[in-house]
Design a protein around this nucleic acid. Sequence first.
DNA 1: GCACTTTATGAAAACCATTACACCGCGATC
DNA 2: GATCGCGGTGTAATGGTTTTCATAAAGTGC
Lengths: 333, 333
Amino acid sequence: MKRPSTIKQVAERANVSIATISRALQNPSVVAPETRDRVMAAVAELNYVPNVQARSLRTSRSRVILALVPDITNPFFGEIIRGIERGAFETGYSVLLGDTQHDEAREASYASMIASGQVDGLLTMMPHVPELYYRQRFPIVTVCEYVADSSISRVRTDNPAGIALAVRHLAELGHRQIAYIGGRPDQPISDEREQGFRSTMRQLGLPVSPALMAVGNFTAESGARAAKELLDGGAPFTAICCASDETAVGAMQTLRNHGLKVPNDVSIVGFDDIPLSQYLDPPLTTVRQPTDRLGFEAVSILLEQLRNPKFEPRMLVLPTEMMVRGSTAPPRN
Amino acid sequence: MKRPSTIKQVAERANVSIATISRALQNPSVVAPETRDRVMAAVAELNYVPNVQARSLRTSRSRVILALVPDITNPFFGEIIRGIERGAFETGYSVLLGDTQHDEAREASYASMIASGQVDGLLTMMPHVPELYYRQRFPIVTVCEYVADSSISRVRTDNPAGIALAVRHLAELGHRQIAYIGGRPDQPISDEREQGFRSTMRQLGLPVSPALMAVGNFTAESGARAAKELLDGGAPFTAICCASDETAVGAMQTLRNHGLKVPNDVSIVGFDDIPLSQYLDPPLTTVRQPTDRLGFEAVSILLEQLRNPKFEPRMLVLPTEMMVRGSTAPPRN
DNA sequence: GCACTTTATGAAAACCATTACACCGCGATC
DNA sequence: GATCGCGGTGTAATGGTTTTCATAAAGTGC
């Protein structure tokens, strides 16, 4: 690999000092037009690109942010990442990706990149913040997930309202016996969604039977398993409300295997609106989260925090939207 | 944010020179055990983490690799990224993620991170290499996609063989009129798969009708559109072979909308084996790519190239595997 | 007890850019 | 005509680490 040229070489070539090169690139207006042209010419000839390490060392900012995901394989996170990447790119930042796989050791290891100066801030989709935060107080924004700490900015969807949309939709169709398959119990959003489910049911005067509350972990596999538990439990239900689309997909498979038709025998509602859900059979009725925007807004806030030393943490709650498709119908009386 | 401590502070604390600190951390065996202990204690007390920028500046290696994806939203790439991330993490590297969105300007902009020293090498899932490569010859590995340049290492799946599996499977079931929905025409793998399809058909003595060759772009939406074209074309077929699972999902939807049953009226085979495919209705018969491994092997090769100056580019072709599920059956009558 | 390794440590250069400060020359001001 | 201000530029310090080279101390062999 050819060794890149340095500011010194450019300076020699353009017959000016290195300070002028730096200025011509950072703050062109302060150098005389003709000098600037000469510098630019030299830069072009030598294919000069400033060394980022040197710059970062001097300015102590890396212009890199770290994004931590529990599972990059999940298309839902994929979309958020895209939003993050888009926002970062537009403002000249880049995104270091960490797939923690729900593992705290990995998370901690990534967090140390902040201490080492490799990244300027952290965007986490995990349900907690790294230990290190309490010692170093670095810039951080939680996305989707959140922790109960008002010093931390968060961007998230209105989960209770989202689930309420789903439950109301089912209730309007005439369902009364609605089962629920939750998310990973260790994630606060699972709680939020479950609480949203319970309280909406209550508001509508519908019964919340413990026998109809199943536990999942947001994966299709867990949805399939939970649905089986519901069926085996014997308590009757005409609809299932799921904490994620993938869970819904899994549940639908179990229902099929038991000879039950969706939506005729059982209606299903998902959550997230992953790209594939409209192509399922039947197309999945679901609650859409503004995924791309979630990521985008999160970077915006993080970048603002990086720029503004008097930044006040804030919370942004984005609305959900009901996507009514084919997996829901009135109950077979 | 608290300012991290520097090697100098640690040195004062441990009563040694900064050189000793550096050595104790980089190459512990060369410092006396008791000194080492003292250093380690000081490091722990001050929460010292070496500044990465300074180190990179000095050593001119960043221990970061850049991964370029055309579309991070695609679950197939998500799995590859996971493999990459895993391999990188194990060896102390981290992954900078670039979502190029098939855009060359973005790609070029990311490539400049190499020139700036921000990353040590490039792992690209794009069908071409950045311009810059021809000037700088940096370490690079192409994953999945490839370019016809023997100076570039590549890791990919055996696409023709994969498609051959699919076609043979259909032929064994008795299908003779098999349609094909291809990938984005500007990606070499689309070509490879299409050629694999054509030559296998020929080998089996089956006709390849131009009316049964449709063009897609790997998305579900394109699959739906292409399937419609096939149906509208009027040429009869009993099976469709798709260049990706998502395409297959889209095609299945179109078939349903036209009242056709999968697999009874039309069999469908996908390619990739994305996580959701086994949960579809019917579960999708598909050709599995070893996605995680693709990513993992790619990093291995890239890292080897980074270490070994006499590295010879090489190509690794990974095998595919047929996943027979419910979307294929013998043709009716 | 002497010459000679070996081992452990320190001093200082180097990596490459940014930037505070000083300087120079020149037109404007009183 | 001395002074001021200002645009344009250079000098040199600075950021934090790694690493070469020198040096000091301790160990070896005769």
